[in-house]
Simulated scan of single mutants.
Amino acid sequence: MLAKIMTFNLRLNVESDGENAWPLRVRAAAAAIKRHDADIVGIQEGLLAMIKDLEPLLPEYAWVGEGREGGEEGEYSAILYKKGKWSAEEAGGFGLSETPEKLGAMSWNTACPRMCTWARFKSADGAVFTAFNTHLDHISDEAQTKGMGLIRQRIERFREQTGLPIVLTGDFNVGPNHAVVSGLERAGYVNAYSVLAEGSQGVGRTFHEFLGGESGEPIDYVFASPDLEIAGVEVDRGQYDGRYPSDHYPVCATVRRTSVTG
């Protein structure tokens, strides 16, 4: 198995963004995904209308997910995938709250409802893995920590039941020293930034508010289970047609299976 895994916060369609508003960025966002030829794209802040805007520009992709308030309501942490290479065998989602089966619920002083989307993918040559994608709260440390704790519980239960490798993408809204990130690393999950000579500490910012630049820390991550290895990672700080595709840089990692051939 060899796959390119991207995390990409699209930034909501907000009219006050002016020249950076979504209708002026949609082609740039599609171009970024195409440039990396990503197999799997975990998006954040994608309203349904925004995902629909991308569909004709990315005909090689299908997607799974629902709004964080249930059904078509609210932001999506959807997962896009190359439908010519992968099929989504199973998919679902859960809320990051004390009642995870009820989307839209809020716990742990979160500023808004949060969720995690997951899907099990299979390729034509038989490779199988599961992707999890999330967007943690931007205000509450308790919600960030407990939300990731719930995601880890679900991932670990899934791996116990299936034995499949997993990737985890998301806007975690925390820097590399936060317990959300260090906890994943201590549990054996591989931070894609670990393959860089400078590691997470030298990656620079991934949230740039349409200003560009590198100074700061990442808040967008790709993690992989211990039975996968990271072959490379790129924070894409480029512009497309003279504009940034989002106020976050897309991050794309190449992962491959280590323990078995597939």
Rank of each mutant, 00 (worst) to 15 (best):
L136I: 02
H208T: 05
V233R: 09
E60L: 10
H135F: 03
I139C: 03
V203I: 14
V255T: 11
E101F: 06
K85A: 09
F94A: 08
G213H: 11
G74A: 01
A143S: 13
Q239E: 14
V235H: 08
L228Y: 10
I139A: 00
G242W: 08
F207E: 07
R243F: 08
E185V: 14
I230R: 02
I33L: 04
G74H: 01
A253E: 06
V180N: 01
I151P: 12
Y81W: 03
R27L: 09
E19A: 12
G262K: 06
Y189E: 07
E19V: 15
G46A: 15
S246E: 04
D137Y: 08
N133C: 14
E55G: 01
V26P: 01
A31G: 09
G65E: 09
V181S: 06
L184A: 11
N191H: 10
G149H: 04
E60F: 07
V26Q: 06
V195A: 10
V233G: 05
Y244C: 05
C116Q: 04
T134N: 11
R35Y: 00
D227R: 04
F207Q: 13
V251E: 00
R11P: 11
Y193V: 07
P165L: 04
D39A: 05
V14K: 15
M106G: 03
E69D: 15
K82M: 06
T110R: 01
V190A: 01
E66I: 12
E217L: 15
E101W: 10
E89W: 02
V64E: 00
L96S: 02
A21L: 07
M50F: 02
L136P: 05
R243S: 10
T130K: 10
T130S: 15
V128Y: 12
E217I: 06
R243H: 10
R27T: 04
M6V: 08
V180T: 10
A31K: 14
V174G: 06
P59V: 00
Q153E: 15
K85N: 12
W86E: 08
V174P: 04
A32Y: 01
T130Y: 05
A179D: 09
P23W: 07
P218W: 00
D171S: 14
P56D: 10
G216P: 04
Q201K: 13
F207G: 04
N9T: 08
G46S: 09
G84E: 13
E156M: 10
H178Q: 12
Q201T: 02
V26H: 09
Y189W: 04
A231L: 15
Y81P: 10
Y193M: 11
G93M: 09
I219E: 01
G95C: 08
A197I: 02
Q44W: 04
I139W: 13
K4M: 03
F210Y: 15
P100F: 01
K146S: 04
R120E: 09
A31V: 14
L96G: 00
A3C: 11
Y221K: 03
R205N: 13
S200K: 02
D220E: 07
R159M: 14
A197C: 03
Y76C: 09
H36L: 14
